[in-house]
């Protein structure tokens, strides 16, 4: 299916906060109560529509475990949006946000849109982090904020789509250089003169060898 833009997202946050479940709810509209640990990175894709434009979201779902952290870091590059997720029933996952944010800021491009997500909003009775705390953290660090439930699907669509809208607005404002793939945005095949599959730089194999 053709699209005007492709946005690359990355989902980050502690292990067990529901990153993979958010992705699954968004791409497949289903909830999987028992989910294996994500190792390495998983992908999902879905088409959305913003202001009449078809936009393809390519979502990278990362492993939350500490052991995989160094590898996850390399995926920030080339992401236009990040969903930073914590679990409202586990304060430690909220406390770790600063570290995640530092990581994200350090390894991503500066225009990356970050959405802070307090997941598991269906578990109100076990709530450990107040909604206001999430809001305050987001305000302080210039993030968008939402509480979601991957189980009931509450706000899941909105979280992904609002992030996309923010990115789209930034494109309209000319903040993003859409010709630089490192920004995590690609122009759809029919909108671009070049083959979007081609990597942007360093294509030369042996043939690029120059003369001495």
């Amino acid at each position: 299916m053709s699209y005007a833009y492709l946005f690359k997202y990355i989902i980050i946050g502690d292990t067990g906060v529901g990153k993979s479940c958010l992705l699954l709810q968004f791409t497949d509209k289903r909830f999987q109560p028992v989910h294996d640990l994500t190792i390495g990175v998983e992908f999902g894709a879905r088409m959305i529509n913003i202001e009449g434009k078809q936009i393809k979201l390519q979502i990278w779902d990362t492993a939350g475990q500490e052991a995989f952290r160094s590898i996850t870091r390399s995926y920030y590059r080339g992401a236009a949006g990040a969903l930073l997720v914590y679990d409202i029933t586990r304060r430690d996952t909220f406390n770790h946000l600063t570290t995640w944010l530092e990581d994200a800021r350090q390894h991503s491009n500066s225009n990356m849109v970050i959405m802070l997500i307090g997941n598991k909003s269906d578990l109100e009775s076990r709530r450990d982090v107040k909604r206001e705390e999430g809001e305050a953290f987001a305000r302080e660090h210039g993030l968008i904020f939402m509480e979601t439930s991957a189980k009931t699907a509450a706000n899941v669509e909105e979280a992904f789509i609002n992030t996309a809208r923010e990115i789209y607005d930034k494109i309209q404002e000319g903040v993003f250089d859409i010709n630089n793939e490192a920004n995590g945005i690609k122009i759809g095949p029919q909108h671009s003169p070049a083959n979007p599959n081609m990597p942007s730089g360093n294509q030369g194999g042996s043939s690029s060898g120059g003369c001495c």
């Binding site: 190792i39 390495g40 998983e42 990278w60 942007s200």
Partner: peptide, 10 residues
């Protein structure tokens, strides 16, 4: 090619 993600079995 830009990110060169490290793929492992799911």
């Amino acid at each position: 090619h830009l990110v060169r993600p490290i793929m492992v079995p799911r």
